[in-house]
């Protein structure tokens, strides 16, 4: 075990506010934002089809790319995070040090710089395709954050659970995968969802290295039409709606995972 205090603290980055699944009121920050954003979108498209309706047809290609980059990067960052989290909890000093150093280094470098670094610096030795560079950079960066999430999640399960499993004869791996992680998952899921949302927004950075995501599509549209205000209004609304959808999804998933509690 680490020498740090035992109280659980999950690192929250700038994802989104996950709505409380038990919230029963109709007027919440979530519903106001959602109705407002959707209303604004519909109103703009209806009242001024040119350029808004045209924008709405132009941007979805970028939405697909944004999702593709986000989903692939999250999928890669989860195993990286699990390994990092286990490494950070390892009693083996070397493994622990390697994992901690990785987290330290990655968290100390802005994502945009990492992105440039992987794209341009590595590009001197081998040609990395744009999309792959984006996914590698996002996975490496978010793997470190995920590592902290996994570490905190695993740490939040009482030592008694490990002892009960070990006393029955389960080995370390069986204990981790059959007893600890299935429970830790509930603590891990909300922040992972949060990381997913944060990453979805961070993928806007990849537009800089020629990946045709939402923002890049917007920039293309704006540079041809010079309608900067209209374009970025639409881009912002689309990001907001996606983020709101996802935070609701995370909230629903979270409540489903509480099935074995009495309350």
């Amino acid at each position: 075990m680490t020498n740090e205090p035992q109280n659980v603290r999950i690192v929250i980055t700038d994802g989104a506010i996950i709505p409380d699944p038990k919230e029963r009121r109709i007027i919440t920050a979530w519903s106001i934002s959602f109705v407002g954003a959707l209303g604004a979108l519909v109103y703009l498209c209806a009242s001024r089809p040119e350029p808004y309706w045209r924008l709405l047809q132009f941007l979805p290609d970028g939405i697909a790319v944004t999702f593709k980059v986000t989903v692939l990067s999250i999928l890669c960052s989860i195993p990286i995070g699990l390994i990092t989290g286990l490494g950070r909890l390892s009693r083996n000093r070397l493994i622990n040090l390697v994992a901690s150093t990785y987290v330290e280094v990655v968290r100390g470098i802005p994502l945009l710089v990492q992105l440039f670094y992987i794209y341009y610096a590595l590009g001197r030795f081998l040609k990395v395709p744009d999309l792959l560079a984006a996914i590698i950079a996002l996975s490496v960066c978010y793997g470190a954050y995920m590592g902290e999430v996994f570490r905190a999640g695993i740490d939040s399960i009482s030592k008694g659970q490990t002892e009960a499993a070990r006393s029955l004869g389960f080995n370390r791996a069986e204990t981790m995968f059959m007893v600890i992680l299935p429970q830790a998952w509930r603590t891990i899921l909300p922040p992972v969802g949060n990381e997913f949302i944060a990453m979805l927004k961070d993928t806007s950075l990849v537009s800089i290295i020629a990946v045709a995501d939402i923002l890049r599509r917007g920039r293309e549209f704006a540079s041809e039409s010079f309608l900067y205000f209209e374009t970025y209004t639409m881009v912002a609304l689309i990001y907001l709606l996606i983020t709101l959808f996802l935070s609701k999804g995370v909230s629903i998933m979270e409540s489903r995972l509480n099935y074995y509690d009495r309350r």
Binding site: G160, E163, G169, F170
Partner: peptide
């Protein structure tokens, strides 16, 4: 040790059932 532990049942003060 995992084989030895299979022959040693243990009951804890705090039950430690697997809640999931």
């Amino acid at each position: 040790i995992n084989k030895i532990r299979q022959e040693l049942g243990m009951v804890f003060q705090s039950f430690n059932l697997f809640p999931h």
